[in-house]
Amino acid sequence: MRIKALLIGATIFAAQKLLRLGLLLIAVAVFTFVLLSLSPIDPVKAYIGADMMQISPEQQALIAERWGLDQPIWSRFLDWLGQLLQGNMGTSLVFNQPVSQVIALRFQASLQMLAIAWFLSGLLGLGLGIIAGALQGRWIDRLIRLYAYTLASSPTFWVALLLLIVFAVSFKVAPICCAAPPGVLSGNVTFWQHLHHLLLPAVALSIIGIANITLHTRQKLIDVLHSDYVLFAQAQGESLWNIIRYHGFRNILLPAITLQFASLSELFGGSVLVEQVFAYPGLGEATVQAALRSDIPLLVGIVFFSALFVYTGNTLADLAYPLIDPRIQLGGQRSL
């Protein structure tokens, strides 16, 4: 009975999620297409670039006709959607490669940085939040809060610049830019060189998440410590740190996980700025290039990819809930 109920729940959950993902992607497709159609970018000009002077207006019209730019917007949209459904995202103008290939390559580089930043902000945020919440009102709590508020109100790119000035320029312990030492073939880059170049951007990126997670964890832990079940645990002679270990941790984990996965979107946005500052060749940096140089296919590809990425993150959080809280069941079914 129980297993059957679980299976039904999981099926409903998967169906709901897929349906929502489909709707989301359609909405993203419509918005991106309409916005880009209305944007001042002329696809023909963007394609030809500097050679524009050498091409006659007749030739330009010919290209436009061949691309179907003379068609009404909805017919162009359907055309484009048809191609997209077949997995054809087009060719990037900047990189002169298929968009899917550019995204795959660039995302690999970003993924390591995002992963390090994500774990770092999650662990540090949770740790600092627990210390601050447990010692509410003490000097260490004030110190952590001051730190969190300062971080929360500093722009990422500014923090990134500051880190560069301190660690790369003054102390010279970190490289000033890029994903590898200059003049080394990508095949010859060692693991340590790689990590060396990765660390500072990752730290800069993690700083966005830490403040948020710290302050939320602190508040949640304070709520838990004022709960009836903690009072009862105290009456049983449980010490503060054991209360946190046995009761606090599990009860603050749920909001922490929600935040942690929700922070994926912020991290993704932050990576655009951080990669720019560190000249790190990841997906964020590709986004900036695509936008500055009117590379529409790549830009659209990145928009789709980021929507998928954030959606996956939130789905993972949903999947984690029932593991932590037995009162939550997939597919909205309650067991008794």
């Binding site: 009836d228 079940y229 009862f232 009456a235 009761h247 599990r250 932590i324 809280d325 037995p326």
Partner: peptide
Amino acid sequence: LIPQSIGYLDPLM
């Protein structure tokens, strides 16, 4: 202590 209600037990344990 025998507490008032089930609310005095940790809901996640």
